[in-house]
Design a protein around this nucleic acid. Structure first.
Lengths: 218, 218
DNA sequence: AGCACCCTGGACCGTATGGTCCAATCTTGG
DNA sequence: CCAAGATTGGACCATACGGTCCAGGGTGCT
């Protein structure tokens, strides 16, 4: 599907340059606010190259952008994302996310805003991007499942629902970060998300120390 | 600014009809996905009427939509929003929000998605909408402040930061609700947000009963 | 060297869109 | 009833945009 025809090294480089630049533009101005002419100008390419590397036009380019941003954000969460079965890993994960998005040229979640914009104009592409979101979310759920098995969460805790809530905190924090032009919302949202997870730990779990204190450090 | 020239009763009705219909269209397809011609067709009006009632064009119409949606969501949170200084009020607030957005014709936050789309294409309008978000958020913060004064929250709790986190849960829950076409994300996010708030209560506060059980009710 | 094919430039096109304008018609206040 | 102004219809415009096409220049392989 995404399998482009045979690519020369030069061609692959051009394609990558297009995706990277377009990703920045879309992050800054949104899909609707970014024209193919903007991309063309920003990458010093021509219209024909855009359609040579992305025969499906803008939709296909947007999908490639989503994939790139997904890879980026998954890599930024290493090595915590795949080992979210200890409280320490969740702390590291939190810090890694804040660091990653804090270093982005523009605020906002490259994937969350994408889906909210696409769902009304390009449902097919939106579905694909939602798939990415689900893949990301699954890491949180799997970690929480293992924690429950390991006794770090109460048996009645619902990993799926908890993961959904934590993921919502990430997305909401990023949405507000974009709106308020500050990383604080993400930081605060993640602290609260961790506090909520701790609330699902067995009663003998010490919670007040780390997280609650963090909540007041603002 | 928003003060339109003198309006006949008929004129006011037409204007209201335009805003209401346009609000639905924008909710369903986004700002970029909604053309003025769509609005014209949906309201059985003519181009001249659109610009008669909204001389500022699309931007002004979008601002009017944001204002309408803001009124709606504030009203939907009555009477809890202004009395968020008891745990019971927060519970009621949670249920009111879920009910309101669950009954919307389409998922998604009419205001959150708006700002994420506008920030890259119409910064002036985006700033205005961000003002609405802040007004909304202030209700949460004020309630939490009063709770801290009343001893329902620990003295070291930061109402501003907690409100920011809770609000992020609302927005993130709605974003995921739109993406997954389900009210569950909002419901789960709000449960977690309340759990996080409870975590900032004094140690003698009974937390496990209400919220944590809720978190597992799936 | 030579062939095939990838890569690039840019002119070109149809359409959708935001916005303007003017003339006709209804409402209102005196 | 009558003027002033609000309201409405819809033709019209400029342009921005996504997308197509073709011809020329590179690149790699035998």
């Amino acid at each position: 599907m995404t399998a482009t025809a045979r690519l020369t090294a030069k061609g692959a480089a051009t394609r990558a340059r297009i995706v990277a630049t377009a990703a920045d533009l879309v992050l800054a101005r949104g899909v609707g606010g970014t024209s193919l002419d903007d991309v063309r100008a920003g990458t010093l390419t021509s219209k024909s190259q855009l359609f040579h590397y992305f025969p499906g036009g803008k939709s296909e380019l947007v999908l490639a952008i989503a994939e790139l941003q997904m890879q980026r954000v998954l890599r930024a969460q290493q090595p915590y994302l795949e080992t979210l079965d200890t409280w320490a890993a969740w702390d590291g994960w939190r810090d890694a996310l804040v660091a990653h998005y804090g270093s982005q040229p523009h605020w906002g979640c490259p994937i969350g805003t994408l889906v909210s914009e696409l769902v009304g104009t390009d449902p097919a592409a939106a579905a694909e991007v939602v798939g990415h979101l689900n893949r990301w979310r699954a890491y949180l759920r799997d970690g929480l499942s293992r924690m429950r098995e390991g006794g770090l969460l109460r048996p009645d805790a619902d990993p799926d629902r908890l993961a959904l809530a934590a993921f919502a905190s990430v997305q909401g924090g990023l949405l507000l970060a974009q709106a308020l032009q500050s990383i604080d919302p993400l930081s605060a949202a993640l602290d609260a998300a961790l506090a909520a997870l701790h609330a699902a730990a067995p009663d003998d779990h010490a919670v007040a120390g780390g997280v609650a204190a963090r909540g007041g450090r603002g």
